[in-house]
Amino acid sequence: MAKPTLGVFGLTGCAGDQLVILNCEDELLELTELVDIKDFLMASSGNDTSCQLDVALVDGAVLSQRDEDMLKRIRERSRLLVALGTCAVWGGVASLDRNQDRTRLLEDVYGEMGKKYDSLPARALHEVVNVDLSITGCPIEKDQLISAVASLLQGDPPLYPKYPVCTECRMREYNCLLIERGEICCGPLTVAGCQARCPGLNVPCVGCRGPADDANVESAMNMFGEKGIPREEIAAKLRTFAPAWGVNV
């Protein structure tokens, strides 16, 4: 039986999620035995840019017409399309300004010539095409990537936690930075999977993985408000990585 074909693509972003794939040094050889990597520009200069793919992993957000065309083309070529990383899944950092006047932003940064640039407000992949699986994270967690590939090869979707970072933080018995130090920790709202890495290093969660399932943003806003933290400050913090928290300020 022919090996499943795989493509890895980057839209607008830092390409950090593609880099995580290349950093799977212990698994790379096994990975290439199991799948036929056809198109991965970051890893190879000899790519088949038109073949059909069983799985496409797409990193970055849609920020230009070029991105949009490329994504639609990837969608047409692929049986399964996987959004890779917070930018692809939620819109990411680049979506911070997506409700502002684009022309004015371009002029502010690039002056008169900015008007000519191909630049659109950031969109997550699912806002443009159908997405079959999302692996969030900034960057993605290596173990979640490997388990996705391992599960997909069996024909199963991978199982990821939908609960918030607090759960993993408590499982690891870390001190609670929110309760004990009154810090703006986004742990109660952010989806787990990172094993509460930041709180474990005494750094409050910044919400880089995007919202947990059923995140209670309204109650969290009130909670931060009672600690004397302005609503706008929390909203700005949450919007850094994802516009989809339902935050209205």
Binding site: S147, S151, P164, C166, L189, S219
Partner: peptide, 26 residues
């Protein structure tokens, strides 16, 4: 907040979820 903290720290919350982890290549 559905954060689960109360369940994790509870001495008698014993619910668990069972799942299989498949290594690459199964």
């Amino acid at each position: 907040l559905s954060c689960g903290a109360c369940s994790m720290v509870c001495p008698t919350c014993y619910c668990f979820d069972v799942a299989d982890d498949v290594d690459l290549g199964a």
